[in-house]
Design a protein around this nucleic acid. Structure first.
Length: 1074
RNA sequence: GGGUGGUUAGCUCAGUUGGUUCAGAGCGUCUGUUUUACACACAGAGGGUCAGGGGUUCGAAUCCCUUACCGCCCACCA
């Protein structure tokens, strides 16, 4: 039974011609197979790449012999994540209350209560969690307040849909009945996302979970509304608004998403009044306009042209007939019209276009509103057939009607920007409506100043200008919504005193009347301005009403509350204040406010961030957060925004399952510098998972070591430990800086490479005892300490795996080092502090690493196996001696490069390969004859490079202005470079001089060539393997799973060919798993 | 139209206050690996005129101007 996953997943193959083809590469396929696939792509399959087959065979062998039974070598995150999360939460690590420590607080951008975790949340919340965990490790009083937003439109739309599926219409319900359903829905499905955040490892203070419709929160929202009204920063007005016909509510500008869409322009001719009806359409006099919304034609009250347009100059004072309804309307001349667009003539429909409305006002035109609130046409359209029809249905019918009436000139495809509702995705219609507005100009000042002066600091900075631009051109904020789910507007209308009856907004009226519409027109609710009272409760409103109308006997039943609710953002803008009970000046508020940082996407900078800033300054006279970290937008590989409708959003929880929460956290963090967009690729999560596995295996290594308490600590181990401690100090300093500037991705990458390269690849190899030898106590102790420190450093980014390894290291210490007593959990450890760095020691070990690398390079190029002992000599120089004087250096080089000796020599060593590290020269002694010419060329090349380098350095140092202007340390660095370059050049020249100039004939290894020749003979064959390797492979399979083919055509029946290997007969045997 | 960001390796992106042993990382590619922690690995290699042009400077991927493409935000012409 073959357990290896890669093996089991090996490709399907199909035969084509005489070439075996692998099918699409399955995930996690070994590289060898990927190469096979490429070979296939090159249409050469195995015939041209025998080494590939060899390689794959080799890979399989390796697995069979060494890996197949050791599945534990893989780290499985799922096993530990739930365990640790429950542990942390149970211990109360996430919860904090005010104390004497330094506070660090974050409020979560509240996701919609009905939302599910998507990539944006993952990015956003991983960043917040990393910041919170770092603060916690730094010993701060860290609080992260979670919660959800009631999201009025989005939630109401979902509830309506749910009810519809149950056969219930919203219109059949009373407000209270509907709200009961909505709350029921919220209790059942709401907050799911908060559970999902736990999977990600978010260490929120769940005891503080808030909801924007909690009783306390609602109270604040209402209080704020009343306060704004009383301060004169809130008003009601009748204006053209963005209307969502599906949700039947107004939308703010920020809630309308514009996008380019395909539309049709209807070229429609409006005939001149009195023109000859006997003439054909083209002959008859008139004006042709172009419109994309022909269904609004019936509401036209004028046609406009440019005053300087010669085509229409003769029409001054004339009228045209609106098609279908045959109403005569004036032609007006206004330079608003663009002569070059369309026909240069424009129909004026004040009720259904903001610009037309303005023109209508200017010329005192009638307003005919022919749309109902659901987007269907009403009686004002004047055509019975169209009444009740949806605007899009009507549009289609208009085509026919206009054709029949002979007004339609032509149709033209046209790309235009269409506004759609952010929440319901319906096309937004401009519509006249009476709504509540916040006077933003009064609020924007302090909020703008706060960001300008960096009282609130933006990361990255460039969002300041976006913010400035918007705040400078701010428009009033429409905060009423015609919905039920939300905070009901605390405005009460007293209807008793007879008010002038204005009629419904959908009736025909003139613009002169409209100017005072708020007062004279009976709005959908209540009595308009006269009997309007804004108060936190009906009782308070009653008091106001009684005071205003002392002659009336008014009871609470005479007051009618506004039916509308507030825009969701009119509650979430209080989030940092209300979640801390700021309006009651609570201890929490005084301690945690202003919050430390807000982490959010830049897409809601206006919807939310700016408004929170306004609210903070307005009611608390204080910024709501010290910094704002704008994350990038997560996009798919094609750069598109992740969205449900595109279906391109990866399943967040699925990703966690596949790569582990830590893997996903790594993935989203590692390439997400602030503000930049992140094209999401799950390869990054894979990298994160691999990283976890790497550390897990480092732990396994330590676990496997036996301890020998009597063994003295080797000198090179001491050096390794000192070196690593120094490097760690440097890394700590770097990471601290990165956190300060919110450069989390950089911090993570640094740690990644520090742990993977410095710790695993170098440090552990340095201290690793010889095979089956025990390790000394001091080294193991130091190593577990260092490892644990690394885990603490990495913990903010990858909490689960670090906690687990940290714990395992404690266990290891207890078992092998006899350590007693309780130890902290990683999550509440103290973040390591940087110590003074011994630069000389570090640079010596870096030289060691360089020498070792170069020796490996020599091994690689000469095909010398790692196992083979080598002798390397170091040229006797001052620098070389200084290096060797450092205790442990010699031993370290000997061990890491697998040498039998590393000694100094004063003479050139014959029959060796020389290399230069820094200013040191080493000789690798070889038994075989050296290709002198090759070495000479290498050295010459290096010499040229060094000379060029020296020249550029000299050019600077000889430049007086450089020496005069550059910083002293830069000049010193250049001088050092110069000295080093000179030293290297000296070494090279000396070596070259001593080299015999005649080259020795190179005896090249011809193995590769031979192999290549064999390949031409490869063909698909039937014989069973004769090689030992293949035999072993086959032995690993159960006999009934092996089939033998007799001819190439038999290959067809192989549905799963897992490998094809060359036999001694230069044929290919194929093996498949049934 | 008004803002604003970008263009660096095949791909995705780093590159802090300008300083040639910094042009980097990951992935991908290529070569090698029975190397006892890890093939989710190890040891290496190749690959970029830092979009084009001009300027400032002793010195430019980095600062300025300009051109060409992308992108986003805001406002919008029926």
């Amino acid at each position: 039974m073959i357990k290896n996953r890669c093996f089991a997943r090996a490709s399907l193959a199909q035969k084509e011609g005489d070439v075996i083809r692998f099918s699409a590469k399955p995930k996690n396929e070994p590289h060898s197979l990927a190469r096979a696939k490429r070979a296939r792509d090159a249409k050469n399959a195995f015939r041209l790449c025998p080494s590939l087959i060899h390689k794959y065979t080799n890979y399989l062998q390796y697995h069979k012999l060494y890996s197949m039974s050791e599945l534990t070598a893989k780290f499985t995150p799922a096993d530990i994540e739930n365990k640790w999360y429950a542990h942390w939460e149970g211990k109360g690590y996430f919860h904090n209350t005010p104390d004497e420590r330094e506070p660090f607080s974050i409020v979560i951008p509240p996701p919609n209560v009905t939302g599910v975790l998507h990539m944006g949340h993952m990015l956003n919340n991983t960043i917040q969690d990393a910041l919170i965990r770092k603060a916690r490790l730094d010993g701060k009083n860290a609080v992260w307040i979670p919660g959800t937003d009631h999201a009025s439109i989005a939630t109401e739309a979902k509830v309506v849909k749910m009810l519809r599926e149950r056969g219930i219409k919203k219109s059949d319900l009373t407000r209270d009945e509907f709200l009961a359903y909505a709350w029921e829905w919220k209790e059942e499905y709401g907050g799911k996302i908060l559970q999902q955040l736990r999977k990600l490892g978010a260490s929120c203070d769940w005891e503080r979970t808030a909801f924007t419709m909690d009783p306390n929160y609602s109270k604040d929202v209402i209080k704020v509304f009343v306060d704004l009204y009383n301060k004169g920063k809130l008003y009601r007005d009748y204006r053209m608004v963005n209307w969502d016909c599906e949700a039947k509510t107004v939308l703010s500008n920020e809630e309308v998403i514009h996008g380019e869409e395909q539309a049709q322009l209807f070229y429609t001719k409006y005939f001149l009044e009195g023109s000859d009806t006997d003439l054909s359409r083209d002959e008859r006099e008139g004006v042709t306009i172009a419109t994309q919304r022909p269904e609004t034609i019936m509401a036209d009250v004028a046609v406009a042209v440019h005053p300087k347009d010669p085509r229409y100059a003769h029409l001054v004072g004339k009228k045209v007939i609106v098609p279908l309804v045959n109403r005569a309307v004036p032609i007006i001349f206004d330079d608003y019209v663009d002569i070059d667009f369309g026909t240069g003539a424009l129909k004026i429909t004040p009720a259904h276009d903001p610009n037309d409305y303005e023109l209508g006002k200017k010329y005192g035109l009638e307003v005919i509103d022919l749309l109902n609130e659901d987007g269907s046409l009403n009686e004002n359209c004047g055509l019975p057939d169209l009444v009740g029809k949806d605007r899009f249905a009507a549009r289609k019918m208009m085509k026919k009607l206009l054709e029949e009436s002979g007004n339609l000139v032509k149709l033209e495809d046209y790309k235009t920007n269409i506004g759609r509702s952010e929440r319901t995705n319906t096309v937004v219609e401009p519509r006249m409506s009476l709504q509540w507005y916040v006077d933003m100009k009064q609020l924007a000042g302090p909020a703008l100043e706060g960001v300008e002066s960096d009282d609130i600091e933006f990361f990255p900075k460039q969002f300041k200008s976006t913010y400035r631009h918007w705040m400078g051109n701010i428009r009033d904020w429409c905060i009423s919504r015609q919905l039920w789910w939300g905070h009901r507007i605390p405005a009460y209308y007293y209807t008793s005193p007879p008010t002038p009856k204005g009629g419904d907004v959908t009736t025909t009226m003139t613009t002169s009347a409209l100017d005072t519409a708020a007062v004279v027109i009976s709005p959908p609710l209540g009595a308009g301005g006269l009997g309007l009272f804004v108060a936190e409760t009906a009782e308070e409103a009653l008091v106001l009403a009684q005071a205003k109308f002392p002659d009336d006997i008014i009871t609470i039943d005479d007051l009618k509350q506004d039916e509308d609710v507030l825009d969701t953002w009119a509650s979430s803008w209080l989030w940092p204040i209300s979640t801390l009970n700021g309006f009651e000046n609570s201890a929490d508020f005084n301690y945690y406010y202003p919050t430390s940082v807000l982490v959010t996407g830049w897409d809601i900078i206006f919807l939310w961030v700016a408004r929170m800033a306004m609210a903070g300054y307005e009611w608390k006279n204080e910024r709501p957060f010290k910094s704002v970290y704008f994350t990038g937008m997560v996009r798919d590989k094609q750069g598109r925004k992740m969205s449900k409708s595109l279906g391109n959003s990866p399943d967040a929880l699925g990703l966690i399952e596949e790569f582990g929460a830590d893997g996903v956290r790594f993935g989203v963090l590692s390439s997400s510098p602030a503000g930049g967009d992140l094209k999401f690729d799950d390869k990054l999560c894979e990298q994160g998972r691999n990283f976890s596995n790497k550390m897990w295996n480092a732990l396994r290594l330590l676990n496997n070591w036996e301890i020998d308490a009597t063994k003295a600590q080797p000198i090179d181990n001491q050096l390794a430990i000192k070196w690593f401690e120094n490097k760690m100090s440097a890394t700590i300093t770097d990471i601290e800086n990165d956190f300060k500037q919110f450069r989390l991705s950089e911090g993570l990458i640094k740690l990644y490479s520090f742990i993977w390269d410095d710790f695993c690849s170098w440090y552990l190899e340095m201290i690793k005892p010889d095979y089956q030898q025990p390790i000394d106590k001091a080294t193991l102790q130091a190593t577990t300490n260092l490892f644990q420190k690394l885990m603490v450093m990495l913990h903010p980014f990858m909490p689960f795996v670090t906690e687990e390894i940290y714990y395992q290291l404690n266990q290891l210490e207890a078992a092998k080092l006899g350590r007693r007593g309780a130890t902290k959990d990683c999550i509440v450890e103290n973040y390591p502090k940087a110590k003074r760095i011994d630069n000389q020691l570090v640079s010596h070990v870096e030289t060691v690493k360089d020498i070792v690398s170069k020796i490996r390079e020599v091994r690689n190029s000469k095909g010398i196996k790692m196992k083979e002992l080598l002798t390397v000599n170091l040229q006797n120089t001052e620098g070389g001696n200084a290096l060797l004087e450092t205790a442990g250096v010699r031993e370290m080089i000997v061990k890491m490069a697998n040498l039998d000796a590393f000694t100094t020599t004063s003479e050139d060593v014959n029959n060796s390969i020389a290399f230069i590290s820094g200013t040191l020269k080493c000789y690798v002694l070889l038994n075989e004859t050296i290709n002198v010419e090759e070495e000479r060329e290498k050295m010459l090349k290096e010499l040229v490079h060094q000379q060029g380098f020296l020249k550029s350095v000299d050019a600077k140092l000889n430049n007086e202005r450089f020496v005069a202007n550059a910083k002293p340390e830069v000049v010193a660095a250049e001088q050092k470079k110069r000295a080093d370059a000179l030293a290297r050049i000296g070494i090279l020249e000396e070596s070259l001089a001593k080299m015999p100039s005649n080259s020795v004939e190179n005896t090249k290894n011809t193995e590769g060539g031979a192999l290549a020749e064999n390949t031409a003979n490869f063909k698909i064959g039937e014989s069973l393997p004769a090689t030992l390797q293949l035999q072993e492979l086959l032995n690993s399979l159960e006999p009934d799973r092996i089939e033998r083919t007799e001819s190439t055509t038999d290959m067809d029946k192989f549905s799963e060919i897992i490998c094809a290997v060359p036999t001694e007969l230069n044929e290919i045997a194929c093996v498949r798993v049934q």
